[in-house]
Design a protein around this nucleic acid. Structure first.
Lengths: 144, 144
DNA sequence: ATTTCTGCAAAACCTTTGCAAGCCG
DNA sequence: CGGCTTGCAAAGGTTTTGCAGAAAT
């Protein structure tokens, strides 16, 4: 195997203007093999098997870089703390991916299709929480 | 005013088997007047104006009780830590409201209606994050 | 009289940050 | 070299917990 198997990662780093470090690469390769919705701790545990000296801080820093670069994505945008819903009307949310502000939007405006009360596998549906993710008008103008 | 204005809250407590305490009541009334998606700290700051001696722990404990009772709802189910998405295919999520497990579901299975790339107000839509919230088959059988 | 609840303080998490040493380009 | 990155340790923010005293039923 003399072929440079790391080429895609090197390109990816070049495109995003970040250095190709050993930790970064192993982290990337490891994450690519994972499934589901791992937490930073879970990623850390996995990477540690290959790079025992890696630190959790490095994992966090690189996950951020990957998410910012669009290489990976957060399952849902988190807001630092729990948020309580004050709007009693049926509605969904519009969330800015830059400033993370949450704004309500009526059900009708979203025009969702048919809803099912049960999913294959027996999952009992209580409600649909739809987050429309994008950039709010304010953030389109400024750098937030 | 001799009318018992607190009756609805007393009933609500009776229905949920919780005691009617002064802190609980003021917390409830205060939250009812709030808008948007406040954090526990924001709720705490508001309630403190009426009950200066209240503790943040009490606010947390009661928000949990309210959410469990269905009096208030979380904007989105949080999972303790950030979760990274490993599924590259377009999909949404099914989230159990009891165990909070996240499962992927394909776009087609959800049958979403027409999508817009812009919302009134200039919000630029990047993607729709749909969480189907309910109880998974496992949790319907056990108490988790 | 019990049971539940509160406030406090400490602990438990999760995540970020500062910085010196090391690696990359 | 010069800048970015790492690892460590400390700090920061959020949430939970244990417990004694107080309040509710």
């Amino acid at each position: 195997m003399l072929v440079n198997e790391t080429k895609p990662f090197r390109e990816l780093c070049r495109e995003n203007g970040i250095a190709v470090t050993h930790q970064r690469q192993v982290l990337y390769e490891t994450m690519k093999t994972m499934h589901g919705h791992p937490s930073p701790e879970e990623v850390y545990a996995r990477v540690k098997k290959k790079v025992p000296a890696i630190s959790l801080a490095t994992v966090y820093k690189n996950i951020h870089i990957f998410v910012e670069s669009g290489v990976f994505r957060e399952v849902s945008l988190h807001h630092g703390s729990v948020r309580v819903e004050m709007n009693g009307e049926p509605h969904h949310h519009v969330v800015c991916s830059k400033c993370r502000k949450i704004t309500d939007i009526g059900e009708k405006e979203l025009g969702l299709g048919a809803k099912r009360s049960r999913l294959p596998g027996g999952f009992l549906v209580e409600r649909y929480a739809v987050d429309v993710i994008g950039v709010c008008a304010k953030c389109q103008k400024s750098d937030c």
